[in-house]
Design a protein around this nucleic acid. Structure first.
Length: 335
DNA sequence: ATAAGTAGCCGCCAGA
DNA sequence: TCTCTGGCGGCTACTT
């Protein structure tokens, strides 16, 4: 079993007693709006409940002239590369391919040299790679770009099929939405699991997996056409997770033989049906543990595990900690 | 915690 | 001939 999180045990994270809370998000012509939004959503929203030490967020234009973003939006940034010079964390929300604007790479190298973290989402890894800082390090990007990143920067160890890679001072995440996982990971490192949990809940995304082992996805995004053909089947299973599900029953429902069902399922999701269902059940249990006070026995039943022992077995295997401990850490009454 | 019984998974192959 | 389907057997992993 592998993990979706690559954390270097000896990564050189100097956790300063007074970390610089300024997060600077780069804006460029052709900006990837979604990735940009992810960073701003996590780091830039007003969160008075987090106290005065929470992140400050600024947007830095990395080039002059009108900055257009996907969707026809125009960006008016807070400043330029001077902001990068002041940042504790620099976020690269995607990147258009091609040469970096004058001075940007030097600004990123200088920021890194004085201790700032560089965080990329999706194709943003290409810009970080262009600085040369990732050479000899591990990094990830959108699965569609992994080959290109590896070809253009052979000195980088490109890690595939993970949501993000944490190298301490250099953090890279896979396709768009994996940026959320990485940003929440950073929140957890900086402010603790409870803070990350709060941010995740407000985002209405799964509060991030914790413990050493976490959800591993064989293929970050299902092959679109196959997932599309199989989408209704998957939705149907999700709605009936609490029931006893068998291959025979599911295959009959889908109108195909068991052998073909298993084959199609694996093509669509990258996982065999049983494995996929267990992951969904663990995710369901996690939600119940976080958001309700339902007893663990009932959580096991509602999420489709035949017994609490079954829940503990799979939950521990995927999340790394037992359900009861998970609830204490991440549940509603978690400190 | 362990072991027996059961279900799932997948390579292989034949038929459509 | 190529592709897809589906049955079989045996190994693996889960359940009880």
């Amino acid at each position: 079993m592998s993990t979706n999180i690559e954390i270097m045990p000896n990564a050189s994270r100097q956790s300063p007693p007074d970390p610089n809370p300024l997060v600077v998000v780069l804006a460029y012509d052709g900006l990837c709006t979604f990735e940009f939004g992810v960073a701003v959503e996590v780091f830039g929203l007003e969160r008075p409940e987090m106290g005065p030490g929470w992140y400050r967020c600024a947007v830095a234009a990395v080039e002059p002239g009108p900055l257009r973003a996907a969707g026809g939006v125009r960006i008016v940034a807070d400043g330029g590369l001077d902001l990068v010079a002041a940042a504790g964390t620099v976020v690269v929300p995607g990147w258009r391919r091609g040469p970096a604007p004058h001075g940007l790479l030097d600004a990123l190298r200088a920021a890194h040299a004085r201790g700032a973290r560089l965080l990329s989402i999706c194709s943003g890894a290409f810009l970080v790679a262009a600085t040369g800082l990732l050479d000899g390090r591990r990094a990830t990007t959108h699965w569609r770009y992994a080959d290109a990143l590896s070809a253009e920067h052979p000195a980088i160890e490109v890690v595939r099929d993970v949501l993000y890679v944490d190298e301490g001072d250099l953090l890279t995440s896979a396709g768009s939405a994996a940026g959320i996982d990485l940003c929440l990971h950073l929140v957890r490192l900086d402010y603790g699991a409870s803070a990350a949990n709060t941010v995740a809940r407000r985002l209405v995304v799964a509060a991030h997996r914790d413990g050493g082992q976490a959800q591993f996805i064989e293929r970050p995004v299902p092959r679109a056409h196959e997932a599309g053909r199989f989408g209704q089947v998957l939705d149907g299973i999700r709605q009936r997770l609490g029931e006893r599900l068998t291959i025979a029953g599911l295959a009959a429902r889908a109108g195909m033989s068991e052998r073909t069902f298993v084959r199609r399922f694996k093509e669509a999701t990258g996982l065999a049906p049983g494995e996929w269902i267990i992951r969904e059940r663990v995710a369901c249990a996690r939600d119940l543990l976080e958001a309700s006070d339902v007893p663990v026995e009932e959580v096991a039943r509602l999420s489709g595990f035949g017994s609490p022992a079954g829940l503990r077995h799979h939950f521990g295997g995927q999340v790394g900690i037992p359900p009861s401990l998970y609830r204490r850490r991440f549940g509603r009454t978690a400190a």
